[in-house]
Structures are given as structure tokens and as C-alpha cells.
Simulated assay, not measured.
Amino acid sequence: MADLAPQRRLPHFPCNDDHLGNRDMARSLQVTLPDDLMQDIADAVESGEAPTTNELVNRALDAYFRMDREKRLAALRARIADAVNDPRPSVPIGEAFERIRADVSRRHRQS
């Protein structure tokens, strides 16, 4: 069942695409947030925890995308470490590509 809590609209504010490396380009974004979250934002700005609503939302989005990036990097690092620490002997590049071609060919025939 949908949450029927009253909601207020956040005014338009610049949204920076820092996670895309475009900090200089600002865009406008309108979001609708529940009253309790709006109050948390207002309290954080009023207390000085964040200078503005815009800055608080930017920080939250930056943290979200940084966390996602860190998870992907950690997974990639783990795979690299597994490969480096694999006790099996290395496979010459030609043989590796032959195996890949054979696997692709086999899969293609099965489909």
C-alpha cells in the first residue's frame, strides 16, 4: 500500500553532476520529499550542519555516488587480487584467446 504521508515540494535548486566530473555545469532539479525528510533538511541548515539546502543535497548525492563507486572499485580490486594470487600457472595469451574463441563459438552454436 502506498505511503499517503503529506509531502512538500523542494524548490528548484542547482544539481551538480560531480559524479560525472561536471562540477562546473549546474542544472535544476525538482524533487518531492516527505515532510519528515524536509524537516530534517531544514533542521540541518538551521543548525549550521549544512550551509544551504542545496549544499546538503549535493553532499548527500556525492556521498551516494562515491559509495557506489567505492563498492565497484572494491569488487574490481578483489577480482584482481584473486587473479594475481591464483596458484594455477599462467596461460599464454594465444591459448587464452583460443579458449575464448572456442567458448564463444560453442555458445553461438547452442543458441
Rank of each mutant, 00 (worst) to 15 (best):
Ala2Phe: 08
Ala2Arg: 11
Leu4Cys: 01
Gln7His: 03
Arg8Cys: 04
Pro11Trp: 06
His12Gln: 11
Pro14Phe: 03
Cys15Gln: 00
Asp17Pro: 08
Asp18Thr: 12
Asp18Leu: 07
Asp18Glu: 10
Leu20Gly: 08
Gly21Trp: 14
Asn22Asp: 11
Arg23Val: 14
Asp24Leu: 13
Met25Thr: 08
Ser28Asn: 09
Ser28Ala: 09
Leu33Gly: 01
Asp36Leu: 10
Asp36Trp: 14
Asp36Gln: 10
Leu37His: 11
Met38Trp: 08
Gln39Trp: 05
Asp40Gly: 02
Ile41Tyr: 06
Asp43Lys: 05
Ala44Met: 07
Val45His: 06
Val45Arg: 01
Glu46Trp: 11
Ser47Lys: 13
Ser47Ala: 15
Gly48Lys: 02
Thr52Lys: 01
Thr52Glu: 05
Thr53Tyr: 14
Thr53Asn: 03
Asn54Trp: 08
Asn54Cys: 13
Glu55Ile: 01
Glu55Ser: 08
Leu56Asp: 00
Arg59Thr: 05
Leu61Phe: 07
Asp62Val: 08
Ala63Trp: 05
Tyr64Ile: 03
Phe65Lys: 06
Met67Arg: 12
Asp68Ile: 14
Asp68Trp: 11
Arg69Phe: 14
Glu70Phe: 02
Glu70Ile: 00
Lys71Met: 04
Arg72Glu: 03
Leu73Met: 09
Ala74Ser: 15
Ala75Thr: 02
Ala75His: 03
Leu76Lys: 06
Ala83Cys: 11
Val84Arg: 12
Asn85Arg: 04
Asn85Phe: 00
Pro89Arg: 15
Ile93Ala: 03
Ala102Gln: 01
Asp103Tyr: 10
Val104Ala: 10
Ser105Ala: 14
Ser105His: 15
Arg106Thr: 15
Arg107Gly: 08
His108Gly: 01
Gln110Cys: 02
Gln110Leu: 04
Gln110Met: 06
